[in-house]
């Protein structure tokens, strides 16, 4: 083989290797979807779609077991929604601070702090929630429910703890995306607003933020995705029983249900857990598709 043919062979081999690498990700998404559906669907058929999705009794190990996951789904929705409501305003204002308020000294502290908060492993957030939040919650619980007979005491492992931990965990995501979308707003817009006599704060809230709206929305949706998918941290602080998502109830989320029961579940119980996984996967896919549509709109 002469050297030119050798080179051409090398070029061809390289091309094929790179193509295969790129196809790997399609293959991964395809097989994950396939497995989630194939493993999650059977229990829907065996238990029945309405019984599974809208049942409020979760007693997988009872003599006549019931597998209703409505409260689990509701907990995930309520927990995610509440943490976004809490985390987004704080995140957005932090982003406003970083881009619009030019306090260089404090910025030099805030930026790395956000970066590090994003990098802290979720189990550490869980550990801190367990040690710091739960005792406070328990004290509040004893105060509020001292005369109530219906309340099941949780020792502080409740929905509020989980929401606070989630809000902190999505904060860096919201800040980062908001910062880049605020930075992308044309300085001319700000200058015109200021020239018309608006104060700096008026400019920020009436001009800059509305102009960066779609980017900020992307950050919110990313935050929703992170909160929905978080498992370990909230499993450590939210308690261990399936309940209607009231603030002081111990709750199970779609994710924590998997973490705490997948280890020992068998038979139909295990299959139902895969259905829980499928429900989570569908939620995540909806979030992903929304994200994709938002991004496409932004580039247009």
């Amino acid at each position: 083989m002469n050297s030119r043919a050798k080179i051409r062979l090398g070029e061809n081999v390289a091309h094929h290797i790179f193509t295969t690498s790129a196809l790997m990700q399609i293959f991964a998404v395809f097989s994950i979807t396939l497995y989630m559906v194939a493993k999650g669907a059977p229990a829907f058929i065996k238990v029945g779609v309405p019984e599974l999705l809208f049942g409020t009794q979760w007693q997988p190990t009872a003599e006549s077991p019931s597998y209703g996951i409505l409260f689990i789904i509701l907990s995930s929705i309520v927990g995610t929604g509440a943490s976004v409501l809490l985390g987004v305003p704080v995140g957005l204002l932090t982003a406003v601070f970083l881009t619009e308020v030019s306090d260089k000294r404090l910025s030099r502290l805030v930026k790395p702090a956000i970066e590090l908060l994003a990098a802290i492993p979720s189990v550490i957030y869980g550990l801190l929630g367990l040690m710091l939040l739960n005792p406070v919650m328990y004290r509040l619980e004893k105060l509020i429910f001292s005369n109530s007979t219906g309340h099941q005491f949780t020792g502080g492992s409740n929905l509020i703890s989980a929401v606070i931990v989630l809000a902190i965990m999505i904060l860096p995501t919201v800040v980062n995306v908001s910062v880049s979308s605020l930075e992308a707003v044309s300085p001319n817009l700000r200058a015109s607003s200021l020239a018309l006599g608006a104060s700096k704060i008026q400019t920020v809230f009436k001009v800059t933020i509305p102009a960066a709206k779609s980017g900020i929305l992307t950050g919110v949706v990313l935050g929703i995705g992170r909160a929905l998918g978080e498992a370990m941290a909230i499993n450590m602080v939210a308690g261990g029983s399936v309940n209607f998502p009231l603030p002081f109830n111990s709750v199970r989320f779609l994710t924590t249900q998997l973490v705490s029961e997948m280890g020992y579940a068998e038979g139909l119980h295990r299959q139902v857990l895969f259905s829980v996984g499928l429900v989570l996967y569908i939620f995540i896919m909806l979030v992903n598709l929304t994200l994709l549509r938002l991004r496409r709109k932004e580039t247009e």
């Binding site: 998404v29 989630m36 995705g225 998918g229 998997l258 989570l280 992903n288």
Partner: peptide, 18 residues
Amino acid sequence: IEFATETLSGIPSIIFGL
């Protein structure tokens, strides 16, 4: 492929675990 990359990065780790 870009759609797959986006999707893959949005899938939570518990799903990867399953």
